[in-house]
Simulated scan of single mutants.
Amino acid sequence: MSLMPFWLPILLSAVFVFVASSVINMALKFWHGADYRGLSNEDEVAAAIRKGNPAPGVYGIPFCDPSTFKDPAVQEKFRLGPIAKINLSANGMPNLGKFLGAWFVFCLLVSIACAGLAAHALPPHPGTHVILHTVGLAALLGYSFGEFTNSIWRAQPWIVSIKYMIDGLVYALITAATFVWLWPAV
């Protein structure tokens, strides 16, 4: 089956998830409000980073690669700490419109992937239960499961990842419900 019959559930599920994420992240301040913390010596840390003039990117402290990991000096840096992963963006005010646009494109891509899976795996007239489970699971994979890597490899606290995975579950349910509601009558 072509993806064309799914254009409306693809578009509307992306819009509904975008709106839900806006509510979760802007109106429900208690939910993600404590996910990020400031440093007590933020000005000194910022000055030290500025002094090195690093380009935007991802940095690790202490920095090492497989060839230097067993070096006693590097091991001592790990023992002394801090151990950090730092994401640096370009200077200037963040462009919220750019972030929101990229998020909406991501929502569209998840919905397109859900439609592609459903069009390939489901018969023309599946039951509501089958649509809900198939599309919901695909959307859950898209919106939630990547958060595991943030806690495993990037030192994001597990509670933060779990909250984002719960957000992803909400987005998956919205996506699945939209597909159930607007399933094409082919």
Rank of each mutant, 00 (worst) to 15 (best):
R154G: 04
H32Q: 09
I83S: 13
S13P: 08
D71H: 05
S13G: 03
P94C: 02
L100W: 09
Y164P: 02
G116E: 05
I83R: 10
A48W: 08
L132D: 04
F18G: 11
M26A: 11
L109C: 10
N150P: 01
A55K: 14
A119S: 03
S13N: 08
N95Y: 06
A185S: 15
L3A: 10
V135W: 03
I112P: 09
D71Y: 10
I159L: 14
V23N: 12
N87P: 00
Q156V: 12
Y143C: 05
S2F: 07
A155F: 15
G92Q: 07
G38F: 02
G127P: 08
L8A: 14
S40I: 05
V45P: 07
F78L: 10
L137N: 14
A73D: 12
C114A: 15
F104Y: 10
N150Q: 13
M4I: 07
A20S: 15
G116L: 04
V74Q: 06
A121R: 14
A113P: 03
L140R: 03
A115W: 05
S151I: 04
A176K: 02
F106V: 01
A46D: 07
F30D: 09
G136Y: 05
A102W: 08
S40C: 02
V180T: 07
D43H: 11
P184S: 06
L141S: 11
R154I: 03
A102P: 06
K51Y: 08
V135T: 08
S111W: 01
A155G: 13
V23Y: 11
K77G: 00
F30K: 04
T68L: 13
I49S: 12
